[in-house]
């Protein structure tokens, strides 16, 4: 394996920087580097976006799958004194905590309610001025069955006629469906980037082949086979895409770091935690590497195909 990697590296680097064909002097080399670096930049951002979406979905699923909220509308509370409310909540909580599938049930305090609505309505005690429902946060030890939901609702309506249980299931399903759609869009964009990169590399290889037709003919006369000639284009494509990949990747990392920095200021309030894991950051390194491989293989296949058509 190590020997194979070493061989690949030597092939990519070349014994020296010599090409039998003057490929480094071809016009348009800078353009290819620019296009490839933009492709790697976009691909890195898109892969990071894909990872972030996966992380968000996982957190939502993990965080909400064993959570439920019992909502008591303000209309149920308006006719009750504070003491009666407290008594009813204490009994309801005790009843809920007695159910097997429930780990714990707890009424959200005024401070917790304020913290929840603060991102939208500010922190000026507006919760006291507007009629808000009371919420009971329920932590489960297993996913609720329909029977469980019915039992909880029956218990709750004994104390508050219009109490209803929200398992977040519908919302979670909607969000997951939305994230899935975004994922497909991201994958589609990724595919477009790959196809564009392949087209650019192939186009550049074809034009360089046309520019150096005489030199290629000379190599053929000297007995160079198609693979030998194609390897020159492959190696040069590898060099260019390494420069382009490095540049594009660096720019993408800077962009992502800036986005993470900006996001860290607001995510607590509005955005879910979308930070990437160490493994995901490491995985991003493979984007430019894959870019280099795609460029090399595309150049080789393009040149081999074109050479086969020669007499």
């Amino acid at each position: 394996m190590l020997a194979k990697l070493q061989k690949f590296w030597i092939k990519l680097r070349g014994k020296d920087k010599r090409y039998d064909l003057p490929l480094n002097r071809s016009s348009g080399t800078g353009f290819v580097v620019w296009v490839m670096s933009m492709m790697v930049y976009l691909a890195t951002i898109i892969v990071a976006l894909f990872f972030a979406l996966s992380a968000v979905t996982a957190r939502w699923t993990d965080g909400l799958a064993l959570q439920a909220t019992l909502e008591i509308p303000s209309s149920d509370l308006s006719g009750m004194s504070k003491d009666k409310q407290k008594d009813a909540f204490d009994k309801l909580i005790a009843r809920l905590n007695g159910i097997d599938t429930i780990d714990s049930a707890q009424k959200l305090s005024q401070e917790e309610m304020d913290a929840l609505i603060a991102p939208w309505l500010g922190i000026d005690n507006v919760s006291k001025e507007i009629p808000l429902p009371a919420l009971v946060a329920i932590t489960l030890n297993a996913e609720l069955t329909d029977t469980d939901i019915k039992a909880i609702n029956n218990n709750a309506t004994e104390f508050f006629a219009n109490a209803s249980l929200d398992t977040h299931k519908k919302w979670l399903e909607d969000m997951q469906s939305l994230v899935q759609s975004i994922r497909f869009v991201v994958l589609g964009l990724g595919l477009i980037i790959i196809v564009t990169a392949i087209s650019s590399v192939s186009g550049a290889a074809r034009s360089r082949l046309a520019i150096h037709r005489d030199e290629v003919h000379l190599l053929h006369i000297m007995g160079a086979d198609d693979a030998y000639i194609a390897s020159q284009f492959e190696r040069q494509s590898g060099h260019l895409s390494m420069v382009a990949g490095g540049t594009g990747f660096l720019l993408a990392i800077i962009t992502l770091a800036c986005a993470a920095l900006i996001g860290s200021g607001v995510k607590e309030a509005l955005l879910p935690d979308y930070s990437l894991s160490a493994l995901q950051w490491f995985a991003l390194v493979f984007v430019p590497i894959i870019g280099v491989l795609v460029a090399m293989v595309s150049a080789r296949i393009t040149v081999m195909r074109a050479l086969k058509k020669l007499p």
Partner: peptide, 20 residues
Amino acid sequence: IKLRRYVGVVFQDFRLLDHL
């Protein structure tokens, strides 16, 4: 292509590769 390796050719215009 392999048979061509038995042949050496000197062209009138040399056809050397200028970058080498």
